[in-house]
């Protein structure tokens, strides 16, 4: 297994535990590389509040930024989500598949026997 430190994972889950922040990620998924102003247009909150949400997402490494001249552009960074997928989802998928395979073998075994 690869290492994800507890604090990194906590930051990701905390960042995701808020509807506005999830909406920001959805907005970036739809159109990557947006400015604060563009993102704020879609949310019913002050620019300061959007800035705070974005900085939490950046700290969790779910948003990466890049400058275009004086404009700060925000990009969706799905790498930590992929790590959580690997750690928390793929593992359980694999055990479910194993359970199905075992069930199939048992049923086929019963039929044969």
């Amino acid at each position: 297994m690869h290492i994800i430190t507890a604090t990194d994972t906590d930051k990701v889950f905390k960042a995701l535990a808020d509807a506005s922040r999830r909406k920001l990620l959805d907005l970036l998924y739809a159109t990557n590389g947006q400015t604060l102003g563009e993102l704020a247009e879609h949310l019913d909150m002050t620019r300061q509040a959007v800035t705070q949400h974005l900085s939490l997402l950046e700290e969790a490494n779910l948003v990466a930024t890049s400058w275009r001249g004086r404009e700060k552009l925000h990009y969706l960074n799905p790498v930590p989500l992929y790590e959580i997928y690997e750690r928390w989802i793929a593992k359980f998928e694999r055990s479910r598949l194993r359970a199905l395979r075992d069930l199939k073998r048992r049923l086929e075994g019963e039929r044969d026997g």
Partner: peptide, 11 residues
Amino acid sequence: KTKFVYVTYIR
């Protein structure tokens, strides 16, 4: 044209 930015922290 489009652009993507990916970041990972590695020890």
